[in-house]
Design a protein around this nucleic acid. Structure first.
Length: 428
DNA sequence: TTTTGAGTTGTTCGA
DNA sequence: GTCGAACAACTCAAA
């Protein structure tokens, strides 16, 4: 796990333990040997767990199931992370979908409806099994950065997740279709970390939305289809276990990526000279989250304007995001790079200046995370280097000192990217 | 098997 | 300033 994920997990387990009245037992180590030991010392009849789809988990759980069955223990995994299992959504010929819209509309929405959420168990009987470690001894907390201020923006745990969903259904969902593109507005759900860590189920999200709104409500439909994207990513990972490293479009193995470690660091630190990119990267580092619209902008900037390998972006997001999810992260980076499923056409390169003007025209978002530009008129917020000298002076900004010059020219690097993509055409 | 229509999120240019 | 077309060609899904 990345550092942000470990931090969230620590606090999430703490909350879970509280809601279980201190009865949560934590075991650290290889699952196989832990369960083998438990099976020797206790009379275990059945073992149940929620299914997961990461390659290492599938491999582990398969071994676990085999071992339990050898011992005569009933072992069963269940659908709990997804609305539909990957193998429940297939084309007529039985093969998996590769395009989102038919996957969702024909595949998911025509399949049997997902089960309704179950209510919490009233009475859990805990066995008297001593844990082999404590939460603190797991050392999930990062040693040298983040911690509390990073979590100031969140309420970790089941109660926080439920409150987030209710608040979104009260407010954000009504403006969701268009509003979710505006990074300074509270119109996105921000449910992703809660969903990732199982603090709320996707079934609860699905049916809570449908209890309040009908299919046909624009915001509701868009929200449900975003849950559909989560399913789509999981399906892609299930059928392409190497999604994290291998481009779905094999031609991209030959793509002429640049190697420019200095540029990568400037991207990571939010020092590219393009305020909307820098705001996003700083939001990520400071809050463990980045608004979806801005994720696309910074992603496009990395893989197209800087022409650095999408796996660098994938790795940084994996480390910094509270909602870091193997399937969604890999699939989305492949999508923005152009090698993934349903990927953007090669000529679709986000212009960081235009995007800033269109989606943060009053610069509320940028000024929140790039405070050194606080006095710059919004008119120039997309590209401070284009502001007249007297405007910069009045805003107390000296480029190259207070805020960087653009590290690449947006126009020229776009053309370079198009040229690089064109070289792929010649590959058979 | 062949054909047909369609494909999350954009930019730029010219009328 | 606004709007529609061009930007390529390919793969996918289903008729």
């Amino acid at each position: 796990m990345g550092r942000a994920s470990r931090l969230w997990l620590h606090h999430s387990l703490e909350r879970l333990n509280q809601s279980l009245k201190g009865k949560l037992q934590i075991f650290n180590g290889p699952a196989l040997s832990i369960f083998e030991t438990l099976a020797q010392s206790h009379d275990i009849k059945e073992i149940h767990w929620n299914r997961a789809y990461e390659p290492w988990r599938i491999a582990r759980d398969t071994k676990l199931k085999d071992m339990m069955q050898e011992k005569g223990i009933h072992a069963e995994s269940h659908k709990a992370n997804l609305l539909w299992e990957p193998w429940e959504v297939a084309k007529k010929d039985g093969t998996p979908y590769k395009v989102f819209t038919p996957f969702y509309r024909r595949g998911c929405l025509n399949a049997p409806a997902p089960r309704r959420p179950l209510s919490a168990p009233q009475d859990i009987k805990f066995a008297d099994i001593p844990a082999n470690t404590s939460l603190d001894d797991c050392e999930l907390l990062p040693k040298n950065r983040w911690k509390d201020d990073l979590l100031a923006h969140w309420t970790v745990g089941e109660d926080g997740a439920r409150a987030r969903l209710d608040s979104f259904l009260d407010n954000g969902i009504n403006d969701y279709k268009e509003g979710r593109n505006l990074p300074h507005k509270p119109f996105v759900s921000r449910l992703s970390p809660h969903l990732h860590f199982g603090e709320i189920s996707v079934n609860q999200c699905w049916y809570s939305a449908l209890e309040r709104y009908d299919m046909g409500h624009e915001g509701c439909d868009t929200f449900l289809s975003e849950l559909g994207w989560r399913e789509f990513s999981a399906s892609l990972l299930f059928y392409h276990q190497e999604l994290k490293t291998d481009p779905l479009n094999q031609k991209f193995i030959h793509f002429p990526w640049r190697e420019a470690p200095d540029d990568l660091v400037k991207w990571q630190q939010g020092q590219t000279g393009y305020p909307i990119v820098d705001a996003g990267m700083r939001e990520l580092y400071q809050t463990g989250y980045m608004h979806n619209r801005v994720r696309m902008i910074v992603g496009s900037f990395l893989v197209k304007n800087l022409r650095l390998h999408w796996q660098y972006g994938e790795a940084w997001f994996w480390d910094c995001l509270f909602d870091a999810d193997h399937a969604a992260n890999s699939a989305s980076w492949q999508w923005i790079a152009g090698c993934g499923a349903d990927a953007a056409p090669y000529f679709r390169v986000f212009n960081p200046i235009t995007q800033a003007e269109r989606f943060d025209g009053e610069a509320h978002y940028i000024k929140q995370f790039v405070p050194e530009l606080a006095n710059l008129p919004a008119k120039y917020i997309g590209d401070p280097s284009a502001a007249p000298a007297d405007v910069l002076a009045a805003a107390n900004i000296t480029l190259g000192r207070d805020y960087p010059y653009p590290i690449v020219d947006a126009k020229q690097s776009r053309l370079d990217a198009l040229g690089a993509f064109a070289t792929l055409k010649e590959i058979a």
